Simulated scan of single mutants.
Amino acid sequence: MQPTTMLISAILITLLNGSLGWCHGVMGTVNEINAYCITAMYDDGEPMSYAKIEIMAPETTIPFQSGHTDRNGSFVINTDIHGTWHVVVSDGMGHQLTLDFPVESDKAAPLTSSREAPQAPQKAIISTLPNKTNRHLEIICGLSLIFGLWGILFGWKARRCKIRG
């Protein structure tokens, strides 16, 4: 076998096999929980869409959570410490909203080994993998495709050599 053919075959096997056999999927759940929804609006009622938000837990100096509001100006947080929480929402154009809200004992309770978290009903499962996908079957299909394509290529090449010689 010629070096160029070996190089091309190695590259193709790496590209085709790597994308089929070594990738992974992700899964997630959407649960209904007892949480706080922070909504930021301008004085005319327009939501502060995609504004930067920073949330500070009671008696801390580093942010508990930071991010951006959604297009409706909302941000949801699941608190875990009792006390008064501090929120700063800024749109980057000079508008800033500062809120303080108390967290009561029924909304936040740190988890300990003696108490387990209540299970919330599961709303939806979001996955990038197709339903009922078997990883081994995907690998076998990928290898079959590779060997099938190489069989066609070498069969065509052998036919050309037979016609010439």
Rank of each mutant, 00 (worst) to 15 (best):
G18F: 03
G18T: 03
G18A: 02
G18S: 13
G18V: 01
S19L: 10
S19M: 07
S19V: 05
S19A: 08
L20M: 15
W22E: 07
W22L: 14
C23F: 14
H24L: 11
H24D: 13
H24S: 15
G25D: 10
V26M: 13
V26N: 05
M27V: 14
G28P: 02
G28M: 03
T29E: 08
T29F: 06
V30F: 12
V30G: 04
V30N: 08
N31Q: 08
N31R: 12
A35T: 06
C37E: 15
I38Y: 03
T39I: 09
T39S: 14
A40P: 03
M41D: 11
M41F: 13
Y42G: 00
D43S: 08
D43E: 07
D44V: 00
E46D: 10
P47G: 00
M48A: 04
M48H: 01
S49R: 12
S49E: 11
S49P: 09
S49Y: 05
A51S: 07
K52M: 11
I53V: 07
I53N: 02
E54L: 08
E54R: 12
I55Q: 06
M56P: 01
M56H: 14
M56T: 06
A57G: 05
P58Q: 14
P58M: 13
E59P: 00
T60R: 13
T61Y: 08
T61V: 10
P63M: 11
S66I: 09
S66A: 10
S66C: 11
S66W: 08
S66H: 15
G67A: 09
H68A: 08
H68L: 11
H68I: 05
T69S: 01
T69I: 12
T69K: 02
D70Q: 03
D70E: 02
R71P: 00
R71F: 13
N72T: 05
N72Y: 12
G73A: 04
F75V: 02
N78C: 07
N78M: 07
N78E: 10
N78L: 05
T79R: 04
T79G: 00
T79D: 05
D80W: 03
H82F: 13
H82N: 14
H82V: 13
V88P: 06
V88E: 11
V88D: 03
V89M: 06
V89W: 00
V89D: 04
S90Y: 09
D91V: 06
D91K: 06
G92L: 13
M93E: 15
M93F: 13
G94W: 02
G94T: 04
H95F: 04
Q96I: 15
Q96W: 04
L97I: 15
L97C: 14
L97Y: 03
T98H: 12
D100T: 02
F101R: 04
V103L: 00
V103N: 06
E104N: 14
S105Y: 10
S105I: 12
D106R: 06
D106S: 05
K107S: 09
K107G: 04
K107I: 15
A109H: 05
P110N: 00
L111Y: 01
T112Q: 01
T112D: 09
T112M: 00
S113D: 13
S114H: 13
E116Y: 05
A117C: 02
A117F: 01
A117V: 08
P118Y: 01
Q119T: 02
Q119E: 08
Q119W: 01
A120C: 01
A120S: 10
A120W: 02
A120E: 09
